[in-house]
Design a protein around this nucleic acid. Sequence first.
DNA 1: TCTATCTGATAATTCATACTTATTGATCAT
DNA 2: ATGATCAATAAGTATGAATTATCAGATAGA
Lengths: 295, 295
Amino acid sequence: MNYQIELRHFIYFLAVAEELHYRKAAEKLFISQPGLSTQIKQMEEILGTQLFVRDKKKVSLTPAGEFLKKEVEFILNHLEQTKKQVKLIGEGQLGEVRIGFLGSAMQNVVPNLLLGLKEKYPTVHTTLEELSNRAQINAILADRLDLGFVRLSRVPKGLDVRPVFEDTFSLVLPAEHPLDEKNFKNINQVADEDFILFSQDYSPMYYDTVLSICEDSGFVPNVSHKSVHAQTIFKLVENKLGIAIVPTTLQHGFQMKVKFIEMKNIKQRAVLSMVWKTDNRNPALQKCMDLLMKL
Amino acid sequence: MNYQIELRHFIYFLAVAEELHYRKAAEKLFISQPGLSTQIKQMEEILGTQLFVRDKKKVSLTPAGEFLKKEVEFILNHLEQTKKQVKLIGEGQLGEVRIGFLGSAMQNVVPNLLLGLKEKYPTVHTTLEELSNRAQINAILADRLDLGFVRLSRVPKGLDVRPVFEDTFSLVLPAEHPLDEKNFKNINQVADEDFILFSQDYSPMYYDTVLSICEDSGFVPNVSHKSVHAQTIFKLVENKLGIAIVPTTLQHGFQMKVKFIEMKNIKQRAVLSMVWKTDNRNPALQKCMDLLMKL
DNA sequence: TCTATCTGATAATTCATACTTATTGATCAT
DNA sequence: ATGATCAATAAGTATGAATTATCAGATAGA
């Protein structure tokens, strides 16, 4: 007596409302006519309202039935759409990947990833945020970020890392500096100059690597300035306040009166890695990873 | 194997999505836990998507489940409303309009609408609820409300807004305050006093507008108290804990020892707007809108 | 006035399946 | 170990949505 409306009722109702004929509607639904009759009757009981007028020889909708027909059409359409969307999200087709990156990753890795995503999974949204190594790690741990691009060799437990891009280092000199690509042999030629480097706590790995480069040539650099912005470092070099060693890709994208000398012969490389939470189940992230494996 | 989704599934799903705990959800639904488990599992099979992650010791929603939860909330609300409407129409009524409003809309706009409706469409039912801006927007999106009266300049996609009433602002002062309509020239005469305002998150637009009024007179107000009730604000003013700036119509309907000075000369206006879902098909809402266009 | 033939509604029966209870396996805390 | 607490699984039950068979009423053609 005290049943609950079910979608079945709506589907049956719509068929009758369209056909205005029980037998035909039942045929269309591949059920028997008596079954349809009882279900519609039950529906009217649940709603407490007559939906059809069964006159002699013909069936028609009451005003309430007329209204319900429009609503049912909407509800069933909406449902169909929802089912589709749920499936897509489940497959990672829709959804969002929150990406963090170091400024130096913006030269090629991140743009390539975004282009690839746009092409292969145009329905995946991305948000971008430029953050320091440490800030990215914290954000990933706190699930404010899905994917980070950092220069770190070690990451906390629960996170995975994978190198995605290896870059040589370049010496950055003022445009008028006597050294150039031809007469440059070894970094110890500038052992006595002041060095401008990225801050130690902004990127410990970078800092250590640069020190090891100098060490390999037998000197300890005199670090006069530290900064977290490539822009600032180049500006300082331009103004002859020192020289710098940076990942080579950073030479693009800035307009400065400085020259770059790529140091291909040294073994150290600037490694950009991606980091993510091991148990991150964001399906859109998986798509990102697949793509990055191929870059 | 090839079942059909039913409303039962949605109701069960929502319970689990809310409790994130099968046994508790089952208790709430007055069914057994295994029954619930199998139904959810079946639902996931039908949709072809994982909705919950059953991790060791805890249940959580997948992104697809998160999305579905919002949709199911909407669908079930909409269905409940549809059932009501059908019943009303069946009884010869035109249906129901669910109206939300800010307290400050109760002075003239909402009562006028209700009177007009009662006169022209006596068969339209109305329900009223006083809600904040944000609560109204959420309720409209979730189909718990047909029409809202808010003070907002922007609304989410899928909603329409239309200004319905423009009001001047009034300065609210304790009855004994030296300033009055005659010697009042400019708001900067009270620049040094403490201000009591409606909370920022209750009505961002109001807050910004009041700040801009002060800014135009060259000062930043010292906001000592914030409240969501006009009553409270007036009481605080009455007790000389500060002065306030409110939409002028609020001066009616309260018995307080405060005086209002209407600031006709400033350009800012308190705009009350109506909001509704663009694709709301409630026929009773249409009648409401027709009426409001003429007010 | 008969039939023949439509309609949808009932009645009796069948059968699918949403439930139940009982149990298991896994994880945690003590 | 031991017990507590999860969700999942297994097996049996019972609800109610189906079926078939039939009925009652209306129309139309002789």
